[in-house]
Each structure stands twice: as structure tokens, then as C-alpha cells.
């Protein structure tokens, strides 16, 4: 197979426990070793990236190896930061009495189900904007499948929603300025409508994210699975959904493939795996399938990761 073109954004997804964090870490390490300035991002609430590298990784970007930076995004902390920012802004604009009155509303929004996902997504966009400044490649170790998919389809759904809101606001502003023909103060206020401005900014942000996520020259989504029945089904479903939203699939990684001559007990297991491997090849046929062998030890730390970086160089 020919070497695929390099894409700056790669996402690793898959069922929990298949080893996607290890794959993402090894991929990032492989890129860094080739001299590409790489950032590896974990959004998994379990934060296993630090375990994979065996190095403490924080909420701030830190250098962990030559050409390799890492960050672990904490959704809760991000959401809190965002809320705090709003509350501070509010105190500048409205009186504390009103702030106190709508405290309940803020709390409702804070505990709304999408809050953490949205916070992670915001951080994603923020990091993506850092491409070439200074990172040349960003590897995302994403959270389990269902959650990730929702995250990536957000721009699609939200874009349409925002458009509708903007239209409504524009109509309201138009009518209000018609009424305020004799009131210069109100007219001036309407000309710089903060609601339209903020909604517009959001929309541009989503459009940028959407453009990047659907550009096969910029990003690729990799699925990590084991040669078992359920991961195959789930990966198939996930790939179908991503394709529907136009997100490019980079390939499939089969982790923990038992090598030959591993002893009688594992050989029998290998037989079963080979059957599933055949099924994987048939199911995901045009996609690049990379097999990662089952190693005799846990992969922990950069030295151990080096054992598989060779396989992940050409994804």
C-alpha cells in the first residue's frame, strides 16, 4: 500500500478498553520522532494518557518528549471556567440584584446534559486554531464511541439551529428599529446588537470546526478495535454515522492481535481472532487496516510505546 498523505488532525475512537489511548500515544510519539511538532490531547474523563506515557500530564499543555506536547482536558474545569467568565461579565453589565435573581437559571444551565461535551468541544476548536502555531500535528485521544460521535456531529446540528436564531433576532431588530424611528438612542443600541454579534461569532466558530472536520486533507478519524464480535459491530455503526456527516475515516486499527507461536492456550484464541480478522478485512475493505500485535507486557512509558510506533508511522 502507498503511504497515505499526512493529515494534521487525527482522532482515535473506539470502544472503551480497546487500547485507543495507547494507539493515540504511540501515533503521537511516532510523529514526534519524525520531527513533527505534535500535540496529543486527551478528552477522556478517565484520563489514561498520563498512564500510557507514564508521565504526569496536566490541564495545561506541557512538553513530555522532544517535539511532543500533551494536555488532558477536564470537561468540568472547562465548564466552570466558562461559567465564571459569564458571571463576571454579567456583573459589569447588569445590577447585582438581577444577577442574584437569575442565579437559578445559571445553575440549571450548568447542570444541563450537554454542558461538558460543549466545553470539550470549545477546547477542541481552541486547540485546532493552534495548528502551525506552534504544533504541526494534533492527535486527539477521544472518549468512547457514542459520546465522541455526538461531539463531532454537534457543528452540523448547532449550525442549523444558530442560523434560525439569527434570522429571528434579525427580524426582531428590524421591527424594533422601525418602531424606534424617533428614538435615536434605541437605534444606536440596535445597530450594535450584542445578541446578533455573539450568535454570529458562534456560528463562524462552528463553521470553521465543520470545515476542518470534513476536510479529508486536514483530518482523519481512526477506529481502534479488538478482533472480537461486538467491537466490529460498533465500529461499523460508528463509521456509517461519521460517513453520513462527511467526516473522513483514516483507517481501522486492530489491537492485541495474538502472534503465532504464543503457546497452545493462546493459539486456540488466535484461531478465533483470525476468523474475526477476516471479517474485519471484508467489512472495512477499502480502509487501511493496521494490525498491532499483543505484546507480552503492558505498554507503559515512552520506551514501551516505541515498540509499536513503527506500525503507526504510516497511518
Amino acid at each position: 500500500m502507498t503511504k497515505p498523505a499526512f493529515r494534521p488532525f487525527s482522532f482515535f475512537g473506539g470502544k472503551g478498553g480497546t487500547g485507543k489511548t495507547t494507539c493515540a500515544a504511540a501515533r503521537a510519539l511516532a510523529l514526534a520522532e519524525e520531527g513533527i511538532r505534535t500535540l496529543v490531547v486527551s478528552t477522556d474523563p478517565a484520563h489514561s494518557l498520563a498512564d500510557a506515557f507514564d508521565i504526569a500530564i496536566g490541564e495545561e499543555i506541557g512538553l513530555i518528549a522532544p517535539n511532543l506536547w500533551a494536555i488532558e482536558i477536564d470537561a468540568e474545569v472547562e465548564a466552570q471556567k466558562y461559567m465564571k467568565g459569564i458571571q463576571e461579565k454579567m456583573l459589569h453589565i447588569v445590577s447585582p440584584v438581577i444577577v442574584d435573581e437569575i442565579r437559578r437559571q445559571i445553575e440549571i444551565a450548568y447542570s444541563s446534559p450537554g454542558a461538558e461535551e460543549a466545553a470539550i468541544f470549545d477546547k477542541f476548536i481552541e486547540l485546532m486554531e493552534k495548528l502551525n502555531d506552534p504544533y504541526e500535528a494534533i492527535v486527539f485521544d477521544t472518549a468512547p464511541t457514542g459520546h465522541t460521535l455526538r461531539l463531532l456531529t454537534l457543528p452540523e446540528i448547532l449550525g442549523a439551529w444558530l442560523e434560525h436564531l439569527l434570522e429571528k433576532r434579525a427580524r426582531a431588530v428590524e421591527l424594533m428599529s422601525m418602531v424606534a424611528k424617533y428614538d435615536r438612542e434605541v437605534r444606536q443600541k440596535l445597530e450594535t446588537d450584542p445578541i446578533t454579534e455573539i450568535l454570529g461569532k458562534r456560528k463562524t466558530k462552528f463553521e470553521t470546526a465543520r470545515r476542518i472536520l470534513t476536510d479529508p486533507a486536514l483530518c482523519a478519524f481512526y477506529f481502534v478495535l479488538n478482533a472480537e464480535k461486538l467491537p466490529i459491530l460498533e465500529t461499523e455503526r460508528a463509521i456509517r454515522l461519521l460517513t453520513k456527516y462527511g467526516i473522513p475515516i483514516g483507517g481501522v486499527l486492530v489491537n492485541r492481535v495474538i502472534p503465532e507461536g504464543a503457546g497452545e492456550f493462546l493459539d486456540r484464541h488466535r484461531q478465533a481472532q483470525q476468523g474475526y480478522l477476516q471479517q474485519i478485512r471484508e467489512t472495512f475493505s477499502p480502509l487501511r487496516i493496521t494490525e498491532i500485535p499483543f505484546l507480552d507486557t503492558d505498554i507503559r512509558g515512552i520506551n514501551e510505546l516505541d515498540k509499536i510506533t513503527g506500525l503507526l508511522k504510516n497511518l
Binding site: 459569564i86 437559571q105 460543549a118 448547532l158 439551529w161 445578541i195 455573539i198 458562534r202
Partner: peptide, 11 residues
């Protein structure tokens, strides 16, 4: 779906 983002408008 975007209650998190509309919070920005709250002020």
C-alpha cells in the same frame, strides 16, 4: 441543544 452556548447571551 445549545443551552451551554446561549449562556453567553445571559448578561
Amino acid at each position: 441543544p445549545i443551552s451551554y452556548y446561549t449562556l453567553e447571551l445571559l448578561p
